[in-house]
Design a protein around this nucleic acid. Structure first.
Lengths: 142, 142
DNA sequence: CTAAATGTTCTAGCTGCTAGAGGTTCAAGC
DNA sequence: GCTTGAACCTCTAGCAGCTAGAACATTTAG
């Protein structure tokens, strides 16, 4: 039986985060000691590892919830899991495209910096002048 | 003189967002009509465009605050603006590297999906098995 | 003069945690 | 058995960067 702290260490998760996952129903309510402390078993280690791994892959918690559902019902179609993963891949590729455009413009800004005072600073100038902007309008938060 | 709505349209910013920027001190408190409605001039259009453009480039609001400060004091060194931009470029490149790793693993998951039921779904299997994971541990939120 | 569009403030919510206060329990050493 | 200190507990609030909604006021066009 593991304490929440050792579960955290095993899975690379902060204690607060584990409690948060429990709160939002991603992790089950675990057993408790007489004194009220949480105790975990192997199933919880697996489940939390799954969650963390999916998070590292950028899956939002809601997608992970779906994936866990699928995982709990082994007779349901694999296609659902596959489509979640594909959705996620699309997101990743979209974000990459945006970042590429941003990188280009940032490099241009920096490359042109003359090193004088801000009156003729290219960085500020580029930011002031929207007309040469290559990035797409919804790129915020990318 | 522009209403907040037309300022929003001109700059591609939601009304609420403009008020939020005012609240956190990024935008100045504008003049008001007798009835208490905000009215904006050209300076505000420029300032908001600057902010939005920087946001599209992924600058956090605090960095934008610094950049606006620099912009307001044309005799200060351009190097500060340059270093903010360089910092931002580093962030962007970091995020790109992470996304690349994630994409690789997502592609592997999807590629191996057999299409049966979830009992032998590769997507779930990959998520369950951490050992082949290539991604770096801090990649969450990338 | 009226009605619709747009404005106002205020509060609360989103994602995914993280930090802190103020208190309790557990395990180890003596 | 007792003490100590680490780890646990709950609860609340905060982070970025908005976004949405309620409930009301103002403006503007017809």
């Amino acid at each position: 039986m593991l304490t929440i702290g050792s579960l955290g260490k095993k899975t690379g998760t902060k204690v607060q985060t584990i409690r948060y996952y429990e709160q939002i129903g991603l992790m089950p309510e675990p057993g408790r000691t007489e004194g009220g402390q949480r105790r975990y078993g192997d199933a919880e280690v697996d489940r939390l590892s799954f969650i963390r791994h999916a998070r590292q892959l950028g899956f939002p918690l809601e997608a992970i919830r779906e994936l866990l559902d699928l995982s709990d019902n082994p007779d349901r179609s694999c296609h659902e899991a596959d489509s979640i993963a594909r959705r996620q891949l699309k997101q990743v590729e979209l974000r990459m495209d945006r970042l590429k455009a941003l990188r280009t413009e940032l490099k241009r800004m920096i490359h042109e910096c003359s090193g004088g005072n801000t009156a003729d600073c290219k960085v500020l100038e580029v930011l002031r002048d929207h007309s040469e902007c290559l990035t797409d309008h919804d790129a915020i938060g990318a």
